[in-house]
């Protein structure tokens, strides 16, 4: 799989502390209000084992959401980000179902979907990443660097796990890593 040349948000859940600052930043940036449902990045909480996973659009190269959208409303921007064109979206949620991360989320006001636009060209960069300055669970890096940094490339790894396997790829079974 080849990755695009653009910058991507890379997630390291082992560093996430579940403060939800990224969600607050995202909601603030896009809506000027504060609530996790208004954020495009969402933290999956497993607080009972103190594990948190920030989930945001990874702008996959071969994005399932683009392929399944009946209205062709999932579009790729110049920056590489994949977003929903709200003019066209009919809120059928096909992109949510098809995404291995469940990254597109429901727009709380109009029921359409929305996903990370990398804060377009805001001079601060993606706000969620900036909000994570101290914990470094989110990083905004060159996609090629991200692919090179093995083990940290959460996006590529999970993406691969969740894609239909190649027919000639026999050893694709996923074993339980921890006992």
């Amino acid at each position: 799989m080849t990755l695009r040349q653009e910058k991507v948000i890379v997630i390291d859940p082992s560093k996430c502390v579940g403060c939800h600052s990224c969600e607050m930043a995202c909601a603030m940036k896009h809506f000027g209000v504060c609530h996790p449902h208004y954020s495009r990045i969402r933290i999956q909480e497993f607080r009972e084992v103190n594990t948190f996973v920030p989930v945001t659009c990874q702008a996959c190269e071969d994005a399932a959401c683009i392929k399944v959208c009946p209205m062709n409303a999932r579009i790729r921007l110049e920056s590489g980000a994949v977003v929903t064109d709200e003019e066209k979206c009919i809120g059928c949620r096909a992109c949510v179902y098809a995404c291995p991360f469940g990254a597109p989320v429901i727009h709380p006001e109009n029921g359409k979907t929305m996903s990370c636009d990398l804060c377009m060209d805001d001079e601060l960069g993606p706000w969620c990443v900036k909000a994570c300055t101290m914990q470094q669970a989110l990083k905004f890096v060159d996609a090629r660097d991200a692919a090179r940094a093995k083990g940290r490339d959460f996006a590529a790894m999970l993406k691969e796990q969740n894609e239909p396997p190649h027919q000639d790829d026999a050893d694709f079974s996923f074993s339980f890593s921890v006992e």
Binding site: A27, M28, G32, C34, H35, H37, P108, M134
Partner: peptide, 30 residues
């Protein structure tokens, strides 16, 4: 809860919050 907290002056608020966050991010004691 599903209702957002609205902010009277969002741009100003965001700017101030960032300034404070930056201060925290750079504080050695933090």
């Amino acid at each position: 809860g599903t209702k957002p907290i609205t902010i009277a002056r969002p741009d100003e608020f965001a700017k101030l919050a960032w300034a404070l966050r930056d201060k925290v991010h750079n504080s050695p004691s933090a």
